[in-house]
């Protein structure tokens, strides 16, 4: 178990956005979290990364409770994420976005930058190479010099993944990576995530595209109204009554 969540709770006023959720994420697996809109999936991610710290419960990362650590420290532990509503640094270049992702791998500080010390030079060079390599992986190396905001939506999602990989994480938390992508891009994304798994990454992802989830995930957890209502492999989830109810019940109102 690389990441273990125990009795996690998060309430906004009276609304229990995450209600006593338990989850175990196995090392090297692709684990999907699904659920209707407003089920608390993104809040669940925000609790793990302390963007909205949880009210109670434990988040055990390789046995260490990281629930009370702040966001930037959690990042140093090897947990990296993307965002549902894309949080790129719009007025930075594509490459610079990835370089910010490598923040934790490097140490050079103000004086190094002023004096262009040896450490600064080697780090800059290494990180640039590493950043361009990551961009190549997601197919954005030709756009390295463009402002992030000028990329089309699908490419912004790719860039966010590249940026998240900049810190050489062990687990990637992807919040709706396929949202806004066309079918070809989605297919590429599926391949890309599989490749990540083959490289040894653990992936925890939130996704609405059922086809993607069912074909990709080793294990699926279903959230509804903040609580986990089901968990299992794709075939189990597809015929789980509570899951169907949660989705169809929602659909009636749409």
């Amino acid at each position: 178990m690389i990441l273990e969540i125990k009795n996690l709770n998060k309430a906004f006023g009276g609304l229990k956005a995450v209600n006593d959720v338990n989850m175990e994420i196995e090392k090297g697996s692709i684990h999907a979290v699904i659920g209707p809109n407003g089920a608390g999936k993104t809040t669940f991610f925000n609790c793990i990364t302390s963007i909205n710290p949880s009210n109670s419960g434990e988040v055990l990362w390789k046995g260490e409770d990281i629930a009370k650590l702040s966001t930037h420290i959690i990042s140093t532990r090897g947990i990296s994420r993307t965002f549902q509503n894309i949080r790129l640094f719009s007025y930075m270049s594509v490459l610079d976005n990835v370089l910010v992702g490598t923040h934790n791998l490097t140490k050079s500080f103000i004086v190094d930058a002023f004096l262009h010390s040896k450490r600064f030079k080697t780090e800059e060079k290494d990180m640039r190479d590493f950043g361009l390599e990551l961009l190549k992986k997601v197919g954005l190396e030709e756009k390295a010099g463009e402002y992030a905001r000028n990329l089309p939506y699908g490419e912004q999602r790719k860039l966010e993944i590249a940026r998240a990989m900049g810190s050489k994480p062990e687990i990637l938390l992807l919040d709706e990576p396929a949202a806004g992508m066309n079918s070809q891009e989605t297919a590429e994304l599926v391949n890309f995530i599989r490749q990540l798994k083959n490289e040894g990454f653990t992936v925890l992802l939130i996704e609405h595209d059922m086809k993607l989830v069912m074909s990709l995930a080793d294990k699926i957890s279903v959230l509804d109204h903040g609580s986990k209502i089901a968990e299992g492999v794709a075939s189990e989830i597809q015929c789980n009554e509570r899951v169907i109810e949660a989705y169809l019940g929602k659909r009636r109102y749409e």
Binding site: S70, H72, S75, S80, R87, F89, V100, H103
Partner: peptide, 29 residues
């Protein structure tokens, strides 16, 4: 200018652009 094109400068600009995003990348805002 040197600071601008360095790890520290990029962290500064990143937190101008998006504090939450910067924190998630390990920048101590």
């Amino acid at each position: 200018r040197r600071l601008y094109n360095s790890r520290v400068g990029r962290a500064f600009i990143a937190l101008r652009e998006d504090e939450t995003g910067a924190a998630s990348m390990g920048v101590n805002v």
